[in-house]
């Protein structure tokens, strides 16, 4: 599904990613952990095509095609979804209207018919139940005045509506209370399937209690320094990141 090869990237001229290799097969869920500032959001932004980032080396294949050659909206339409760490507010633009425009842009790309207001409402109501989202949030401006948890729910709602192939979740669990965490995880799990891959960025094991990953990667200073199974996350939880650095240094001096 996704194949990242030796990816180097800078943000506004500052090199941040220094050679990332990562492959996610269809149906797999990978977690990416790592200290603050290690480049996790940068990686997700580069994958989604945010302007301001420059890929200086390496390539990314999505479903066998060059992902980096596509405009952000083309990536989105072909199935790359990013749940933002900090979803932006857009005053005056109705959430409901926005979601419908988004769904229809993706449907049109897939050669499906656009949903009319009634059909959309019906589909939307169903998905809203999954993430336990109150109806009035649909009638408000996008994320405007939403609480932190409501913003995250709104991201997952969009993901459920768009049914992407690759879901990238950037710290979707941060700022959620325990109940909301369960709800959001439920939404994510509802989408898990053999045709869909997920890249889940998180600082906490507790999310991975609900969404059990196939692989866990640790990102540090723009590199993946360790990859393991779901137990790696537990180990990080108890030991922190320091020992990895030492391990990396030791192996560095040895080699």
């Amino acid at each position: 599904m996704l194949k990242i090869e030796n990816l180097h990237a800078s943000a506004d001229g500052t090199p941040i990613l220094h050679g990332i290799d990562l492959e996610i097969a269809a149906g797999e869920v990978h977690a990416v952990m790592g200290p603050n500032g290690s480049g996790k959001s940068t990686l997700s932004n580069v994958l989604a095509g945010k302007p301001g980032y420059e890929v200086t080396k390496g390539r990314v294949l999505f479903q066998g095609e060059d992902l980096l050659a596509l405009e952000p909206e083309e990536r989105a339409r072909s199935g790359v979804f990013l749940a933002f760490q900090y979803p932006v507010e857009i005053p005056g633009v109705g959430n409901n209207y926005f979601l419908k425009a988004s769904v229809n842009a993706v449907r049109t790309h897939r050669g499906e018919e656009e949903l009319d207001a009634m059909d959309f409402l019906q589909v939307c109501r169903e998905k809203m139940k999954v993430v336990d989202m109150p109806e009035d949030l649909m009638n408000r401006s996008i994320n405007e005045g939403f609480s932190g948890g409501e913003k995250k729910r709104n991201e997952i709602l969009q993901m459920l509506l768009l049914e992407p192939k690759l879901c990238i979740l950037d710290e979707t669990d941060s700022g959620l209370d325990i109940d909301a965490l369960r709800v959001v995880a439920g939404g994510v799990n509802a989408l898990r399937g053999p045709e869909r891959s997920m890249l889940i960025i998180t600082h906490y094991q507790r999310l991975l209690d609900y969404i059990v990953p196939d692989r866990v990667h640790v990102l540090q200073d723009g590199r993946i320094v360790r990859t393991g199974g779901k137990e790696l996350a537990l180990e990080l939880e108890s030991r922190g990141y320091g020992w990895l650095e030492e391990a990396a240094e030791n192996s560095g001096s040895a080699g």
Binding site: A76, P91, A101, S102
Partner: peptide
């Protein structure tokens, strides 16, 4: 904002439509 435009585009909405949407929302 760059971030507003990128948010819209990440949801499959073209940049031009995104600008329209934001301007229109502003004038609503």
């Amino acid at each position: 904002g760059e971030d507003q435009l990128f948010y819209c585009r990440q949801r499959g909405i073209s940049e031009e439509d995104a600008i329209s949407m934001i301007v229109n929302g502003f004038c609503k």
